[in-house]
Computed example of a mutant assay.
Amino acid sequence: MEIWRIPTARPADLDGMASWLDEHERARAANFTDAAARRRFIVSHAGMRRVLGRRMGVRPGEVRIAVGRHGKPYAPARPDVQWNLSHSGDLALLVVAYGRSVGVDVERLRPELDQAAFARRFFPAGEAEFVDGSPERFAWLWTRREACVKAAGGRLAQGLRLPVNGPSPALVRDPAGSLPGTWLVLDVPVPPEFRAAAAISARTPPTWTNPTI
């Protein structure tokens, strides 16, 4: 499993990167009214295509991507190549694996939000107490949840009560059965203003690398 770090600030050739995107991605990029948000989207998706193109033996612009249930992407020509992309602020993460479903999430800390109230309403009781208003703890649990939901191709509402606390790697399953599957969740090293996690459909820790584009 590979977890790629994609910095999205000040790219050398934004127009060249944009040319790699497909029609759907270009339309999404055009919908951003904020130039910085548009740049981040283009660079993160171009970086994704660059990595996937290498794995599939094609050029970045030739990677064909379809969208499945709840927006989970896949490559019709290479269903064995599984991946997921997440970005927050000027950092994007891409997880790639072969033959196993994967998900990744990165979040910039947001101390202005009332994480304690949200956790009390939606998280399991023990995790709500663990958050105790801490942006770091909230983001840590949130990224683990998002990674599992994205790996499963589910909806966020299905993962809000997942029990994800514990040392990394953590084996996560939904006792209520709302989100099917068993997921191994790993915390991903990122700069201190972020938290990140990846999930993979496995029961034992995979060998993984954390390169930067």
Rank of each mutant, 00 (worst) to 15 (best):
R69V: 08
V102L: 08
F123A: 13
L91K: 07
L93M: 05
R50W: 09
H45A: 11
L109Y: 07
I65C: 04
R78K: 04
A46F: 03
M56R: 07
A92M: 07
F122R: 05
S44W: 01
R69L: 06
P73C: 04
V81S: 12
G68Q: 00
A30T: 11
P124Y: 00
D80I: 08
E127K: 08
V58W: 00
A128P: 13
V51E: 02
F118Q: 02
R54D: 09
F118W: 03
A37I: 01
F32S: 14
A46H: 02
L93R: 00
A128K: 13
R110A: 15
R59T: 11
E112T: 15
I65V: 08
P60M: 01
G89N: 10
E127M: 04
F118N: 06
A66M: 00
F32Q: 12
G103W: 02
A37E: 11
S44P: 01
F122P: 05
N84F: 03
F41Q: 13
G57R: 01
A75H: 06
V63F: 01
L93A: 13
R64M: 02
G68S: 06
H45V: 04
Q115N: 11
Y98H: 15
A128M: 06
G53C: 03
I65M: 04
P79S: 08
G53K: 05
R78D: 11
V102H: 10
R78A: 15
P76S: 08
A117Y: 09
G99M: 05
S88T: 14
E112P: 09
V63C: 02
P124M: 04
S86F: 00
L52W: 03
G68D: 00
R137C: 12
T33N: 14
R59D: 12
P111T: 10
G47L: 01
D105M: 07
V104G: 12
H70E: 08
A116K: 15
A116H: 15
A128Y: 14
V51W: 01
V106E: 03
P135L: 14
I65W: 00
A30Q: 14
V81F: 05
R50A: 15
A117C: 14
I42P: 10
A119E: 04
R50D: 06
L85F: 05
A35T: 11
G57N: 00
R38D: 08
A35F: 01
R137M: 05
D132T: 13
M48A: 15
V58K: 02
P111G: 12
W83M: 04
E112G: 14
F32K: 12
P73A: 05
A30V: 05
R54C: 03
I65N: 02
E129K: 13
P79Q: 10
A30M: 03
G53E: 03
T33M: 10
S86C: 04
A36Y: 03
G68V: 07
P73M: 00
A37H: 13
Y74C: 07
R137I: 09
R54M: 03
K72W: 00
V102S: 13
S101V: 03
D80K: 09
E62C: 10
A125H: 10
G71L: 00
E129H: 12
